[in-house]
């Protein structure tokens, strides 16, 4: 479980995240949605200790994110940001191997190699293992970084806009993959996502933010209604039931 208690983040006079409190259940996929500048990524960054909150407290699986030793936390929680530019030359297998760092401090054991190969296999990257990361396409590179996170073998996986720059097919692949991480491997997946329909189809729980505040939390059925969506986005969105999924139509 992730518990967030009265967390606030300010940049100068601007309050980016304003006194947010909530509980996220362990297991399943949780999506954080909201308009631009709602503070979604900032909240996720604070959950993963990339940013320190100005006030409040965040616990992941009972560990205080602000005070727990970095390495201990790195065995419980991993984060993948959207921009993953490498300045160095690494093979895919080397990159995935870094996921084992919190467990082996850079000295790989046979067990670590198993983890690496399984992660590569899970993401269908085994054939690309010896290629350099800078030679991969955007979708492949994204998968390589996910494989690194997977090799880290944490119960909690946080992702900041994992669909950024992916086309339709790769977006669907990515969401299925994240669903699989939750269903098959029992991970708790939390992601920031812009597309409400992806959030609706693949999440167990949705958090909706606006202007730094958490304004709604619930299942897709509870969030995907015209009233709630209007509350979040200030846009009239019709919601249709298509093959058991609630789809918001806002294009015209």
């Amino acid at each position: 479980m992730i518990s967030i208690d009265h967390v606030t983040k300010r940049y100068g006079a601007t309050t980016v995240v304003d006194d947010v409190s909530c509980r996220l259940p362990g297991g399943g996929v949780t999506s954080i949605i909201g308009p631009n500048g709602a503070g979604k990524s900032t909240l996720l960054s604070m959950m993963s200790r990339l940013l320190l909150p100005d006030a409040g407290r965040i616990e992941v699986a009972g560990l205080d994110v602000g005070t727990t030793a970095g390495q201990k936390l790195a065995r419980t929680l991993s984060i993948l940001r959207q921009e993953n530019q490498l300045t160095i030359r690494l093979s895919v297998r080397d990159l995935v191997g870094f996921g084992r760092f919190p467990h082996n401090n850079g000295r790989p054991t046979p067990e670590d190699r198993d983890h690496i190969e399984r992660s590569l296999d899970y993401l269908d990257l085994t054939d690309l293992g010896d290629r350099f990361v800078d030679e991969l396409s955007g979708g492949q590179r994204q998968r390589a970084f996910i494989a690194m996170v997977l090799a880290q073998d944490t119960d909690y996986i946080l992702l900041d806009e994992p669909l950024n720059n992916l086309d339709m097919r790769h977006s669907v692949d990515m969401m299925r993959l994240l669903r699989g991480l939750a269903d098959d491997l029992g991970k708790t997946v939390v992601l920031v996502i812009h597309d409400v329909n992806f959030a609706s189809c693949y999440s167990d729980e949705i958090l909706a933010m606006r202007e730094g505040a958490l304004i709604h939390q619930g299942t897709p059925e509870q969030i995907m209604t015209p009233e709630v969506l209007h509350d979040i986005y200030d846009v009239d969105i019709q919601v249709e039931q298509i093959r058991g999924n609630r789809i918001g139509v806002y294009f015209a």
Partner: peptide, 21 residues
Amino acid sequence: LRHRLDVLALGRDSAVSLGID
């Protein structure tokens, strides 16, 4: 520090996620 330096070379976010102080 050599192993930690390898991780640092991935950039700040990845290094923090992998448990580097």
